[in-house]
Amino acid sequence: MKKKYTYLLMVIPAFVIFFTFHTYPALQGIFYSFTDYKGYGNWDFVGFKNYLNVFQDDRALSAYGFTFQFAITATILVNIISLLVALGLNANIKFRKTLRATYFLPFILSVLIVGYIFKFMFTHLLPDFGKALGIEFLSSNILGNPDLAWIGIVLLAVWQSAAFNTLLYLAGLSTIENELYEAADIDGAGSWKKFWKITFPLIAPFFTINMVVAMKNFLMAFDQIVALTGGGPGQATESISLLIYRGGFEGGEFAYQSANAVVYFIVIVVISLIQLRVLERREVK
């Protein structure tokens, strides 16, 4: 009985806090998505009207397109880079522990602060550098170009997120026994064959985690965009999260953007489940 009461004393406060600040607001948002509530004043029920309007809204569809483009590109790049870095850090090199700590620093820095630093680089440092060297591509601010601004956001997101993914890959690499590589050396296997036949299959569960978590985080991109472009130029880099925030809290579209948020939540869940199903099959192979 004493253990039972101790368990309840630990669980109930956590449950109350979680329900109050997470579950209740989520349920409230779902409720208002079926109304015409503007965030203030009176409201009436409108049924599924808000949900139907989401699929007819060109601005929302454009935001979905940008978000998917950004998330897919960043997810692929961050996993390639972090895996390569992890393989390098896992090798027998000098100052390995120091380098691991150094590579993890970007992850603990504030996204907004890093974003403003990158904005200064893209706006002033790189253009001045490009003009001095006569490099035309670097001579202009890519954040002011509607076709190239998303690349700057990808670079920032990948640079900061690679640290966490690298840490997970390092954890996976540490579970592989050296005897397997020694046996492969005896059989005359090359570096690529050892990676494809030994390393990658054994770290496949970590690859699955990294892919799912990275995609989910990039689909919810907000801070990086606010710091670098604010959704501009125009609406070229406006993500779904930013659109929901602006429309719901600044544009008097609380109910409509609540419906948009529900749709987006379902999209993220479906994508994550598909990723898990496909990648877990790869683990079995």
Score class of each variant (00 low, 15 high):
Met1Pro: 11
Arg59Ser: 13
Leu87Glu: 09
Ala171Arg: 02
Glu182Phe: 08
Phe129Gly: 07
Ala261Val: 04
Leu27Cys: 12
Thr35Leu: 04
Thr166Ala: 10
Thr73Asp: 00
Phe31Cys: 11
Ser33Asn: 02
Phe107Asn: 15
Leu167Ala: 10
Ile72Pro: 03
Ile153Asp: 00
Tyr256Met: 04
His124Ala: 13
Lys4Pro: 04
Leu143Ile: 15
Ala149Trp: 00
Ile135Lys: 10
Ile30Phe: 11
Gln224Phe: 04
Gln257Cys: 12
Glu280Trp: 11
Tyr37Cys: 04
Gly232Phe: 03
Ile186Gly: 10
Phe137Gln: 14
Phe68Asp: 05
Ile176Glu: 08
Ser161Thr: 13
Gly188Phe: 09
Trp159Ser: 08
Tyr245Thr: 07
Leu83Ser: 01
Lys97Cys: 02
Thr35Pro: 06
Gly231Gln: 00
Gly88Tyr: 12
Lys3Asp: 15
Gln257Trp: 07
Tyr64Arg: 00
Ile80Phe: 12
Tyr51Trp: 08
Gln56Thr: 13
Thr102Arg: 02
Tyr37Asn: 05
Phe206Ser: 11
Tyr245Ile: 04
Lys2Gly: 06
Val267Cys: 11
Phe164Glu: 10
Ile80Asp: 05
Gly248Glu: 02
Thr229Asn: 01
Ala101Thr: 15
Val158Phe: 04
Lys4Thr: 13
Leu61Trp: 05
Leu77Ala: 12
Pro146Ser: 10
Asn260His: 13
Lys3Ala: 10
Ile268Phe: 06
Leu156Met: 14
